[in-house]
Amino acid sequence: MSVTRQMIEAQAPPPLQARPWSTARVSGLAAMALWLVVGVGIILFLVAEWDPEKIDRYAPRYFSGLWVTLTLVGISIVLGALVSIPVTAGRMSSSRWASVPAYCYVYFFRGTPLIAQLFLIYYGLGEFRPQLQAIGLWGFFRDPWNCAILAFTLNTAAYQAEILRGALQSVPKGQFEGAQALGLTRLQTYRKIILPQAMIVALRPYGNEIILMVKGSAIVAIITVFDLFGETRRAYSRTFDFQTYIWAAIFYLIIVEALRNLWNLLEDRLTRHLKR
C-alpha cells in the first residue's frame, strides 16, 4: 500500500516550442512577401503615374463603361431567364419533337465559345443585309450593342436552362404528388411548392452564371461596344499607359467580389430555415 506523503507541486507548463522553419512555412512567407512586393509595386506604380489630367479625362469614361457592362449583363441575364423557361420545358418534355431541339440548342451554345457566337451573329448575320432589310430587321442587327445582347441572351439562356432543369429535377416527386392530392392546379403547384424549393438549389449556380457573364462580357469590346474593357482598350491605345489595364482589373475585381459576397449573404438569409 502506498501512501502519498507529499503532493507534487504544480508545474509550469512546458516551454513553448519554437515553430520549426518547415518548407511550408518558408514558402508561405516567401509567397506572402512576393504578394506584398507585387501589391506595393502596383500601388507605387499607380502613385508614380498619377496624372490628374488623365484621371479627369478617363475616369468618367471608365464609369460610363462600367455602366455599359452592368446594363449589358443585367439585360442579358433577365432576357436569358425568360428564354430559358421554354427551353427547360422542351428539355424536360417527354415528346421527342420538343426535347431534341432543346437539347441541340443547349449543346450548341454550351459547346462553342461565346466569342465565336458573337462573331457569328454580328459579322455572320451582317452578310444577309438585303434579306434583313427586306423584313425590316437590319436596323437591329447593324448595331453591335443589339448583337451583343442577342448573343449573350441566347448563350446565358442555354446555361440557365440547364441550371433550372437541374434544380427542378432535384425536387422529389412526392412534392408533385402531394400537391396533386391537395387539388392544386399545375400553375399553383409550380408557384407555391416546386419553385420555392428549386430556387434555393439554383441560387448558387445562378450567382456563378452572373459572375461568368460579367467576366465574359469583356469580349464585346472587340465588336466596338465600349463597355469597361472597351473603354480600357481605347484609353490604352491613346496613352500607351499600362495603368489603364490595372484600373480595369481593380474595377472587375470589385464587381466580382461584391457580387460574390452579396450572393453569400443572400444564400445565408434564404436558407436560414434549413440550418440546424
Binding site: 511550408a24 506572402m32 467576366k215 474593357f229 475585381l253 467580389e257
Partner: peptide, 26 residues
C-alpha cells in the same frame, strides 16, 4: 501554415475574378 494558405487564396481570388480576356492582355 496560415501564410501559405492566404497566399494561395489571394491568387485564386484575383485570377477567378478577372475576365480571362483582361488576364490575357495583362
Amino acid at each position: 501554415e496560415k501564410a501559405l494558405k492566404m497566399a494561395a487564396e489571394i491568387y485564386t481570388t484575383i485570377f477567378r475574378g478577372l475576365p480571362e480576356l483582361l488576364t490575357l492582355f495583362l
